[in-house]
Design a protein around this nucleic acid. Structure first.
Lengths: 338, 338
DNA sequence: ATGAAAGCGCTAACAT
DNA sequence: ATGTTAGCGCTTTCAT
């Protein structure tokens, strides 16, 4: 592997000069600059990052904390973030975390070991030590798609979006509306909160049987949730006519059970999801859902971190919170109550 | 950030001794070892990877080349690979590649710039320079879910799996079977080849109108493919009764069009996919498909690379090709021809 | 404008 | 068993 000395020797100059050229510094004769540039081109020389990193005391690496079981929404988000970060000259290291205590601890240990320049959290974690470390070490950090007090955040208004989703159902004439959410993370609770509020504002009587909290936001748990709901309703006079699922994947599982029970969507029950994952528009029926501005979230997240790393803003000084607009996408899984 | 000298000073020993302890070498007094270990624990000392990497001339980083638009199957695969690689002490750097020439070139340039210890290709690329670089630089490399001559590979027998899928359709009494595949990559051609062979072996007359090649393996292109097939059949006396889609995502798009046209799956047309992505079992109808042994593929891929990096096998010596078993998973999207 | 020299944190060869 | 030393590839004073 060709290094800076090789280039210097071949050019008959010193490594310092080559370094200056590589880093685009001033004070270098333009002829020599040309010559060195040509040599770099010819030899395919690339500065050794480890060496640079050592002297500069920066790793040029940012960590992204993301659930082990990340869904299509997060998948799209992180490749956008990765692309931007790369254009800023950073490496991206992924930290896949399962949400049990042990895995979070292990992840935190790795995080500490990596000498990162910054961290992006695509998902909340339970262990408070995580956030303590970030702030304690003064490590630049951004939370995205959720908000943790004291850290800059890029996200949509989950509560308002949920209200819109539920209001859509209400405007279609539905009154007996159920919800499946998860209790694990803030967004699940926020989405539930929006559900409550929409109901309250429409004077729809509240009843705790209207909502079921499951452990994960997956199709599998969507199935559990729906079975539970059906069980509760077994003794009711009339069945619910609409469902709000806290994620599209939950919705997919719920619809699966509904279909299996011979309950038609949207004929008998209307369903709205959240996230607008890829397949939402191909499903049968096409899923009505809340669409978050993926590209923009990814962009702003990468920018916010970059600014924090390079800028003179103290990491925990005035963390900006950017709230982005979402859209309700109406497809086929919701219909007027006949 | 505490470094090896700090530890040495506090322990009243030399950096070499600390280094020996950190790296678990012999020849160190067990009392001193204990003492150093305690100090490391207390201070939270972690060796600086950049420094290690520089003296060891290894980056401890492996690159994974994966499509920009990676699907759920690849998503699961890569988090398995990442986990194994991590347990071997490697960092994982992702190279998301779009399949146009420019993006591939950019990706190759980055690949060269990274001083990688090894490369895993989760997907074929078109640019031959990629493979030339890998072999030319003697860089350890493994291809997974496909095979490139001269490189170790972990994959299933695509052709045989496709034959099984089509034979399943044939055994259900279907004769007019169509296929949607892509022309971009080897696996698309191999899956098509299996389709041809199964047909030939069952003495089903061949006709080039039976297959359509689309540009990408996505639901969107599955829709294009199915529309094309329907168009071709518009003038035929009888319509086809079965479809083999080269990927589940293609199948999802195809089914979308079928449903929209009022053609029932599996009532009018049976469909079988390939990959068994997550949602396949939640769709309506649940998708019959070929299931690849994800976990095993991921495991063996990581192992194969690790062996190549550490072992004394020359990278291009005797590249092993490991062919793993697959399974046909029969669900609801296929049915006897009535 | 350019070069010489020091040093980033670590490991390994060599000495003791 | 342990310490001393040199050096990995780079950037950055500090001279000139």
């Amino acid at each position: 592997m060709v290094n800076i000395k090789d280039i210097a020797r071949q050019a008959g100059m010193s490594p310092s000069t080559v370094s200056r050229v590589v880093n685009g510094k001033k004070h270098v004769n333009s002829e020599k600059r040309e010559q060195i540039l040509k040599l770099i081109e010819q030899t395919g020389y690339v500065p050794n990052k480890a060496a640079r990193s050592m002297v500069l005391k920066r790793s040029f690496t940012v960590g992204i904390v993301i659930p082990d079981t990340f869904n299509m929404f997060q998948r799209q988000l992180f490749s956008i973030i990765e692309r931007h970060l790369e254009s800023f000259g950073y490496h991206t290291l992924f930290f896949f975390v399962k949400f049990d205590d042990q895995s979070e601890e292990h992840c935190l240990a790795r995080l500490k070991a990596e000498h990162l320049d910054g961290v992006i959290m695509i998902h909340e974690v339970k262990n408070p030590l995580f956030y303590e470390y970030l702030s304690g070490a003064g490590l630049p950090a951004v939370t995205t798609t959720f908000h943790f007090p004291g850290l800059p955040a890029i996200h949509v208004n989950e509560e308002q979006a949920s209200k819109d989703a539920v209001n859509h159902l209400i405007s279609l004439g539905h009154r007996r509306i159920m919800m499946i959410s998860g209790d694990g993370f803030t967004f699940g609770r926020q989405r539930a909160e929006g559900f409550f509020q929409a109901l309250a504002e429409a004077d729809i009587s509240w009843n705790e049987n209207r909502i079921v909290f499951v452990r994960h936001y997956t199709p599998e748990f969507g199935m559990y949730g729906m079975r539970e709901l059906l069980l509760r309703e077994a003794k009711a006079a009339e069945r619910f006519t609409a469902l709000f699922a806290a994620t599209d994947e939950l919705a997919i599982g719920a619809i699966r059970v509904l279909e299996d029970e011979g309950i038609r969507v949207p004929g008998d029950v209307s369903v709205v999801g959240f996230d607008d994952i890829d397949i939402a528009k191909y499903m049968t029926p096409r899923l009505t859902t809340i669409c978050q501005p993926l590209t923009e979230i990814g962009e702003k997240t990468a920018q916010a971190l970059h600014r924090q790393i390079t800028g003179n803003h103290p990491a925990f000084g005035e963390p900006g919170e950017q709230i982005l607009p979402y859209k309700l996408v109406i497809r086929e899984s919701t219909r007027s109550r006949s």
